[in-house]
Every structure is written in C-alpha cells, then in structure tokens.
Design a protein around this nucleic acid. Structure first.
Length: 849
RNA sequence: GGGUGAUUAGCUCAGUUGGUUUAGAGCACCUGCCUUACAAGCAGGGGGUCACAGGUUCGAGUCCUGUAUCACCCACCA
C-alpha cells in the first residue's frame, strides 16, 4: 500500500525514520515523532509526491549487548566470555530476530504508513558494506587514525565511549589537603618540610608524576625545580611550573597524574612527564599501585585517605561538590584511561558542514538550532570510533601475527574488508553505533552504489524529524557524513521536535518510573486520538509536559467527527448517487459562508504546514469541523423533527464533509478512512490515503457573504445571550426587531430570516433600516446594527440597565481607543492603508447611538 | 564560566514577518438544557495590568536592553 516507486515520474518526497534501537519499546518520544512523520508523509502523498518514508532499526551496540548479556546470565548463568565471541554474537542475532520486530509492530499500531518493504537494519548487508567503505575511504584520506590517548573509559561496559556519551553530574565528594614531603635539598632551599596539595582523588596519588604550581605564584617560586616525595610510594617527582594551575584554587599546588586526568595528561606532555597507569580496565588498581593493587578505585580512595591520615599527612578534609563524568549508558563514573583507539579527525568534516549551513543547503526548524549547530561545529573534537564490544561492525583492519599468535607490533596494519593474508587477525574492536547511523540517509538507499535506483530517486531526503536530544550524536554527524561522502546535505529541512516530559516536567525514564506507555494510551483513547493530541501539543520544538488527560481532547474530537457523520448518514439515501465534487455555485448564504471558511482554512493550513506548524494547522481544522461545520452548518441544514434532508442539501453537506475528512486524514488516518468508505461505495484504489489534498482554488471566494454570515452569527449569539441573561423560559417564543445600519444590510438580513428562525425560537422577526426601539426591550449592537428583543413583562429593567451599561462602557472604551488612533496624525500618516481602513470600519460599526 | 529556552486565564499551553474588534484553545468553574448526530454533548457566562523595569515605534504579548525565577545544553578547574 505504501510502497514507493523509484521509477515514477512524480517528484520524490523522502523521510528517513530515525531508527529506534532493536532492544527498545515504543516510548512517547517515538509516538510523537512517528505521528509527526506520518502526518507529513501522508500530506505529501496526497499532494501528489512520490512519498517514501523508510523505516528501520539500529543495532545499538552497547545497549543491545547489555540486554543480551543480562539475558544469558539470567537464563544460563553464563557471561559472554563463557560463550566466546562467535557464540555470543550468534546469540545477539537470535535475540534480534526474535525481538527486533516488537518496536516496528508497535509503530504499526500508531497507524504509520512507512514503506515496510524497504525496512533496513544498521547491520544488514548493504549497510555493513557502506560502513566498511566509509572507514576505508576516511582512512585513505588520512582522516582516520589510531592513537594512544586518554579516553572516556567505562569500567562497567569495559569499553571506551565518545565525549558525547558522557554526562556530567554533580556529586558530593571531599577535597583532601595532603602534605607531600619535600626532598631534602628542596626542604633546605625553601625552609619548608612539605608542600600541600588539594585533591578529590587520593587513589591516584601512586600515579603522580609531578607536582605543579603556577609560575607567577610568589608563594612557590623557591619550590620550582625542586623535588617532592609522593605519599604511599615514596617516589621522588619534580616540582614544575605550568600556567594551567590556578593559584586561587585549593593550595595553588596541583598533583599531576598524566595517566588519569585529561589536563594532567596535557601538562605531562608539555613537561615530558612519565605516564604511570595504575588503574585496570575494570576499575581496580594494578600492580603499579603497590600495596593497593587489586582494590577497587573507590575502596582504594577510602583506604589511601585513611592511611594518609594515620601518617599525619592530611591537613584537612573539606566537603566538596564537583562535576563527575558518568556513562550515559551504564551510569558508571567514567575513568580517563590511556588506551589504543581509532579516531576520526572531525575538523575537515565540520568545515564542510559549516559552509553548507551558511549556504543554506539545509535548514533547521525552528531556526535557532542553526546557530546551535554552528557553535557545535566550531568546537568539534575528534571522534573515538572504536568500542571494545563484540556486537557491532568489526573494524576492517588486519594485523600480522607473531608465531605465538599475538599481534606483531613491529609491522604495520593493513586496512581491508577481507583477510589480506592468511594468519593475519582482525582488529578485535567494533565501531561506535553512530558510525553506521551517520550513513543512514543514503546507506539505506543503496549507497555506495551511486547508480542504485532508490539512491538516484530518493536522495537527498526531504526532511528529518527528530528530537534535539540527539542533535550532536546523530544529526550533525549525518550532515557531516552526507556532505563528505555524497557531496550533498542528506536532508533539506530538519524539524526538531521537543522532548516529551512527564506532568511535572521531568524527563521520562525507567529509573523514575514516570514513563507513559503509548500503547496503553492507544488502547484507552484510540490511535487517532493519541496522534491528534500529540500533534496539537507539539509546538515549534517546545518540550511537552504530558498530562494523560490531554488525550481526552483527541478522543472527544474523534467522537465529534463520527457523530457528525452519523447525522449525514441518517439522511443519506442508499438509492441515490451523490455527486463527487463540490458545486461551489450556490445562492445559499450558509453554503457560501461554509465554502469560504473552508478555503480560508485550507490556505492557512497549507501555510502552517510549509513551516512545520502542524499544531496550528490541526487546531484550525479542528475549529473548522467543530465550530463552523457542526455548530453552525449542520445545525442550520438539520431538518425539523421528523423531516428528511433534501437530496441537494445532503449532497452538498457530504461533499463538504469529505473535504474535512481529507484535511484530517493525515493526522487521524483510521477514523477518516473508515468513514470515507462508509460514506460511499469505493474501490480500494479510491482510498482516502490516495485522495488528492484539497486545493485552495479561489481566494476570497464568497468573502462578502462570509462577512454577512458572521454578522448574523453575532446577532444570533447576542439574542441567545439576552435570552439567557433575562432568564427567558426555554419554551417561550420571542420577537426580534433589527434596526439595520443601512438599506443593503436590511435587505440581506431580511432575505436570510430563515437562519434566525432556525436557530432562535422566534414568534416574529422584522428588519428595517429605520425602526424605533420598542418599549421594554433588551438590545444589543452588532456590527453597526441594533438588535431589539421586546420583553414586556419578562424583562428585569434593572438587570437590563446593568447589562446595557456594561455594554455601553465596553463600546465607549473601544471607540475611544479607535478614535485615539484615528485622531493621531502620525498613525494615519504612517500606518498602512488597510490598517487605517479597518479602524474606520470599527468606528463606523461601533457608533450607532 | 558560556549558551539556549521558558515566564500569557485556577491548570496545561497556542499566539506566524509588530496592526481584523479591548489577547485565544482545551480542561476546570458558574447558569440553563437528557432539543432523535453527539451529555465524550448543546447554549450562555465569569476569569488574564501577557514575570518585572526601561527603551524603540503612530502602534509591542510580539522587537531591543537590563533584572528575577525555572529548565535544559555545553565547558578540563584539581
């Protein structure tokens, strides 16, 4: 049904679904973005584009590996090492086959019209080929390199992670002030016995390579060049000067630990310091930590602090709150650890992205993200792409081995997809998940085969819809990757949605247990209602604080839509073939008004949609259906008690209704399609999903009639108001006399007296341009005309006086502001003509008495 | 430390390049209605000095500056 044709002559419109993790279940963010994407793709399909919405899933390296590992531990009491790499990866694939469809199945419940025949997975054959190809290309271009650097190491997942995957959180800790005894010569020179440093991480003391002070710091001038003895090991290290040190912090002296801190690593490089690694990959201390070897890093912290205390080396301990990096995945505190990793040099890629952004090759909606993106590109750092995992794309790099089977480090590696020579072994690491995701917009279409028909037809894609939370992980990398590998921005527009939060504004998360399951909502309210509410709530990338009660709005609206159809259906005759197009040539004021309202709305809706203001568009359609069509149009054409609607009326009403169905279909596909087929006999090819989007053909059609009808609406409302305010009994018929502002109006109102009679319980209805106010009547002013309702014997004079006084006060205030404007010469001189004209009209309509 | 967003009715929020009545919606509230499409509804109503202080303009919820509060993002302060 939704299969896109890469051979069609239609202009393509493409959306790539951000691939959810195979491990995942549909959450509110997916539901929101799914609803938005589906609405857009359905609109484009109706507008005649060759619309492709390509779905898929992401292998999600760490996340999936963790889930499967937990699973085999629970079921078989085994860890992945017990199974071995090959067996384990097999298990993950099994798991993927078994559970990978869950989330796509959930997407289907939302009513998403993806092209499931093109569903992709980030580790399927084609995408793997693209990944290997890009690795090799980047390597050949010198943009991928291997290096031994400090990386963010997660001791739980036992892998390096990228800077973007590290979250910074405030943690309470302590700041220990530790005495470092001075070497004899230095002690003599300075007249001091020790130098005091402040540290939050005493467990790294055995890895200290120096103590550093600021060269400008007078307190320590004599210390520079001296030596100091490291507590716990007694090793002697130099006292150096470096401008990085801030004299005002702590004691102004810093312990330098190049192996376990990024800044210290940099200082170490500048001063050629020894790098002493004392922490293992699992977070325990190694043999270089001496007596503390084998202890966990946090136990060691405690123990070393105690030992220092015992030795009398602690001057004081302060409570201290600092930022620590934790793994976004496991929550474990990150350990900066020295290791061999693969990196991508991002600066050249970012350069291209910034240039393309300046050229306007792609646009963010809302636009503020353009500058956010730019800022990010300017500060880009190299990307650690290797992960010490088993689940993912293997790195296409091969090493020569020595006789014992270990890597021969004296020989260079070879970059290749297949084993270049027998005996060579492949790099054990896999690539970061995002290294496949960043190719998603084109790898899914057959790239690197640039002649692939899908790639030719559907690339570059039209719009990307995503939450801003993955702007830096994914979106910016897709832009860089797209520009680098295909020379094109992978999408023209980027619509950033907000993040769905809970009722009180917290992110939905498993740990808080504040998530709302979209499937439960769908069961409770229906998919259309959920979609409706999500889209109405989704305003211009603003976060959504979600109260489940908001879905009642959608449910009630779907209900209204259904009930409106029931009314028409009651009056439809099975034996009659109704026309299939709306004949706009009509003399009936109500029809003319409704037609003009529809065209106004279509115009406004198209405008809103072109800027991704789906919420505005949908609210306008809501008002059109509920307020205009149901509350006025249907009420007016509805026949009296036992009567039936004449054929012509039904014909027109059903045709108007079907325009509303078309406008609503992209947002509420289920109910609209169902009613569409209940309304008439239709072929499958005549499904609403394939119907053409309504076109706003005639600007300002029946504009004057529309205005007249609105005046009548106001008159009806003010008469109803009088009835209510004056407590006129419901069954009492009243008379209405209208003193129209001029002859033309009088004639027009008089011609449409049936509208008044239909909507008001009237005994008599009179209009003239020169009537007198009847005695004992309530009155109202509407658009320059006066409405009188004689209520002798019923009217409460005091109440009516109060009502009128309030009204007069309101009108006078209004008139005053209008007059102020019109008497202001500058206003008349500067304001555009239509604005001044409007003020004149306001004045004319207000001044009656 | 840098940046972004938010602050509008009791609540949750819309409000487009400044100018259709003196700011809207849904929910909640008040009054009257089980009127054969719909009580998940109909009709009527109350409720806001648009966070605060200045400024620009004929005209500011909307643009500018500053302040306050909240939220988020980025950053190497031991």
């Amino acid at each position: 049904m939704f299969k896109a044709d890469n051979q069609s002559g239609k202009e393509p419109f493409t959306i790539m679904m951000p691939p959810p993790n195979v491990t995942g279940a549909l959450h509110m963010g997916h539901a929101l973005q799914g609803a938005v994407q589906d609405s857009i793709i359905r609109i484009k399909r109706m507008q005649g584009y060759e619309a492709l919405w390509l779905p898929g899933t992401d292998h999600a390296g760490i996340a999936t590996q963790n889930v499967v590992e937990k699973n085999i531990k629970k079921e078989h009491k085994l860890n992945r090492h017990d199974l071995g790499r090959e067996k384990f990866v097999e298990k993950v694939w099994e798991w993927k086959q078994k559970y990978g469809d869950i989330i796509t199945g959930q997407y289907k419940k939302l009513g998403t019209s993806c092209d499931w025949s093109r569903e992709r997975f980030t580790m399927d054959e084609g995408l793997s080929k693209a990944v290997q190809e890009t690795f090799i290309r980047l390597h050949n271009e010198g943009l991928i390199y291997k290096g031994n650097y400090l990386v963010n190491w997660c001791p739980t997942d036992m892998t390096a992670i990228s800077d973007e995957e590290v979250d910074h959180v405030e943690r309470k800790g302590q700041l220990w002030y530790v005495h470092y005894p001075l070497a004899e010569v230095t002690a003599k020179k300075t007249g001091q016995k020790y130098i005091t440093i402040a540290t939050t991480r005493p467990e790294t003391i055995p890895a200290d390579a120096a103590v550093s002070v600021n060269p400008e710091d007078k307190r320590y001038t004599d210390f520079i060049g001296g030596e100091v003895e490291i507590p716990t090991t007694g090793r002697l290290v130099p006292i150096i000067a470096d401008e990085y040190i801030k004299p005002e912090f702590g004691t102004g002296a810093l312990k330098v630990t190049p192996a376990h801190d990024q800044n210290d690593f940099d200082i170490g490089k500048r001063h050629n310091l020894e790098v002493i690694n004392i922490i293992n990959k699992d977070g325990t201390l190694n043999d270089s930590a001496g007596a503390y070897a084998g202890m966990d890093r946090f136990d060691a912290r405690k123990k070393i602090a105690e030992d220092l205390e015992e030795e009398g080396l602690i001057e004081k301990v302060e409570d201290y709150v600092n930022q620590v990096g934790i793994s976004g995945r496991s929550g474990t505190i990150i350990e900066p650890l020295l290791s061999d990793q693969w990196f991508v040099n991002m600066k050249p890629l970012a350069r291209k992205a910034m240039d393309a952004s300046k050229e306007g090759e792609f646009q963010f909606f809302p636009p503020r993200w353009n500058s956010e993106f730019h800022r990010w590109m300017e500060n880009i750092r190299d990307w650690v792409i290797s992960r010490q995992l088993w689940w993912g794309h293997r790195i296409p790099v091969w090493y020569f081995t020595k006789k014992d089977g270990t890597i021969d480090t004296t020989k260079d590696y070879i970059v290749s997809i297949d084993q270049p020579e027998t005996g060579m072994i492949q790099d054990p690491d896999v690539l970061d998940t995002w290294f496949s995701s960043w190719l998603w917009p084109f790898s899914t279409l057959g790239w690197p085969d640039e002649d692939a028909q899908d790639y030719q037809k559907f690339y570059p894609t039209s719009v990307l819809i995503s939450g801003y939370d993955i702007l830096f992980f994914w979106i910016s990398r897709m832009i860089m990757g797209g520009l680098h590998f295909t020379d094109k921005a992978p999408f023209r527009d980027i619509f950033m949605t907000g993040i769905v939060k809970d009722k009180i504004g917290r992110k939905m998360s498993k740990s808080l247990n504040n998530g709302i399951d979209p499937l439960e909502l769908i069961d409770q309210y229906g998919a259309d209602a959920v979609r409706y509410s999500l889209i109405v709530l989704c305003a211009q990338g603003q976060d959504i604080k979600l109260d489940p009660r908001r879905f009642e709005m959608g449910r009630n609206f779907a209900n209204k839509l259904w009930n409106a159809f029931r009314l028409l259906h009651m009056h439809m005759d099975e034996n009659v073939t109704y026309s299939n197009t709306l004949d706009t040539d009509t003399n009936n004021l109500t029809d003319r008004w409704m037609i003009s309202r529809i065209h106004q709305t279509i115009e406004a809706v198209d405008e809103d949609l072109s800027r991704y203001r789906l919420n505005e568009a949908l609210m306008k359609i809501y008002g059109l259906l509920w307020d205009d069509y149901c509350d006025w149009y249907l009420e007016l054409i509805k026949p009296e008690y036992g009567d039936t609607m004449d054929r012509e009326t039904v014909d027109r009403a059903i045709n108007i209704y079907e325009i509303l169905l078309k406008l609503l279909h992209p947002f509420m596909p289920f109910i609209t399609e169902e009613i569409w087929h209940s309304a008439r006999e239709r072929e499958v090819s005549g499904a609403l999903i394939k119907a053409p989007w309504p076109v706003n053909k005639s600007e300002d059609i029946y504009k004057e009639d529309g205005r007249l009808f609105i005046t009548i609406q106001r008159m009806v409302s003010s008469i109803r108001n009088i009835r209510a305010e004056m407590n006129v009994p419901d069954n009492l018929e009243i008379s209405v006399l209208i003193k129209a502002k001029d002859e033309v109006t009088a004639k027009a109102l008089s011609e449409n007296h049936v509208i008044f009679k239909k909507l008001l319980r009237l005994e008599s209805f009179e209009v003239s341009s020169d009537a007198d106010r009847p005695k004992g009547s309530a009155s109202a002013v509407v658009d320059g005309s006066q409405v009188f309702v004689p209520l002798i014997g019923i009217i409460d004079i005091d109440k009516e006086r109060g009502r009128i006084e309030a009204e007069v006060k309101r009108l006078k205030g209004f008139l005053k502001s209008v007059n102020a404007k019109l008497q202001n010469e500058k206003f008349v001189a500067n304001a555009p003509e239509p604005v001044v004209e409007k003020e004149h009209k306001k004045k004319a309509d207000t001044e009656v008495n």
